[in-house]
Design a binder for these strands. Structure first.
Lengths: 145, 145
DNA sequence: GTCCACCCTCGAGGCGACTTGAAGTCAAGG
DNA sequence: CCTTGACTTCAAGTCGCCTCGAGGGTGGAC
C-alpha cells in the first residue's frame, strides 16, 4: 500500500495522481493517457515519472465531456483547446464548429425520431411473417396489427 | 460487354446479378456479399458460380434499410429474418426488440437534443478563452456572450 | 482468338474512441 | 528485504459495418 498513490480520500496537496483524476472524473486512467497522447490534454507535471495533475484537469475533462456530448470529435476538441491556448478567440472557433455540426446533428435527430416512430409501431406489431408486415414495406405509412 | 451481366436495363428474365441488385438497391455489391456472409441475406441460387437473385431480394434489402434506420444492428436484423423463416411470429420479435431499443433510442435523442442546445449556444459564443466560457462550465446554464 | 465487363473468393484495412495486456518501475509498510 | 499496489510504456485488440485489392474465372461481342 502506498500512501501517495492512494485513490481514496483527498491527497494532502492538490496534486492528483492519474488514478484519482480518473475516479473523480468517472473515466478510466487509460482514457486520460489516451487524451494526452492525442494532444487533447496537455502533458502534466511528473514526479518520479508519474503524472501529477492540478485541479484544473477536472474542469478540462468536464469540457471534453460537454463538447463530446455536443457531438464534437476529439480532434475538434483538441483544436478548440489549442486555439484557446494560443489566444485565438474561442467564440470564433465554436461558431465555426457549430455551423458545421448543427446540420449533421439535426439530420441525426431527424433520423432518430423516424426510428423511434418505427420502433413504436413495431412494438404493436402482430404480424406473423416479415412478408406481410407493413412495417418493413418501403414507402408505406407504418402501422401494424 | 456481356449481355447477361449488363447492369443497365432490365434483364430478359427476373434473375438479377449482384451488380444489378446493388444498383437498384443503392448499395455496393460488397455489402450484399457481406450480408450474405453474416447470414442476414440467404444464399441465392448460382449460375456458373455467380449469384442470381429473384426480385424478392430488393424487398429484403429494403427491410434491412428500414430496420437499420430503426436502430437495429445487423445481428438483430438477422435474428428477425431467421425468426420469420422459421415461423416464429415476427410481431413478438419486433415487440421484444422495440422494448430493448426504445429506451436506448430515447436516451440517444435526449443526448442529441442537449447537444443541439449546446451547439446553438456555442454559435453565439463571444468568449476569448475556454476558461471564461460558461459553455464549458459544468452545471451552469448555457448562454454566452 | 482477343477483349472487356462483370463476376468469384479471401484476407486485409479503416473508422473513432478507447481498452487490455505484458513487462517493468517506484515508494511505502511490515 | 520483500511485498503490495499504483503507476509507467508500447503494441495490439475491440466494436460494427463495411470497403478494397489481389488474383483468377466466365461468357458474349467482334
Amino acid at each position: 500500500m502506498a500512501a501517495g498513490n492512494d485513490t481514496s480520500g483527498p491527497s494532502p496537496d492538490q496534486r492528483l495522481s492519474i488514478g484519482e483524476v480518473a475516479q473523480r472524473a468517472g473515466r478510466r486512467a487509460s482514457s486520460i493517457r489516451y487524451y494526452e497522447s492525442i494532444g487533447v490534454l496537455p502533458q502534466p507535471e511528473r514526479i518520479a515519472g508519474q503524472r501529477r495533475y492540478g485541479p484544473d484537469v477536472l474542469r478540462q475533462l468536464a469540457v471534453i465531456d460537454a463538447a463530446q456530448r455536443g457531438g464534437l470529435s476529439l480532434e475538434q476538441i483538441r483544436d478548440l483547446f489549442t486555439a484557446s491556448r494560443t489566444g485565438t478567440p474561442v467564440g470564433d472557433q465554436l461558431r465555426a464548429l457549430a455551423e458545421r455540426q448543427l446540420p449533421e446533428l439535426d439530420a441525426l435527430i431527424a433520423r432518430a425520431e423516424t426510428s423511434r416512430h418505427w420502433l413504436r409501431a413495431a412494438s404493436t406489431c402482430q404480424c406473423l411473417t416479415l412478408d406481410d408486415c407493413p412495417l418493413v414495406a418501403p414507402d408505406v405509412p407504418w402501422h401494424c396489427s
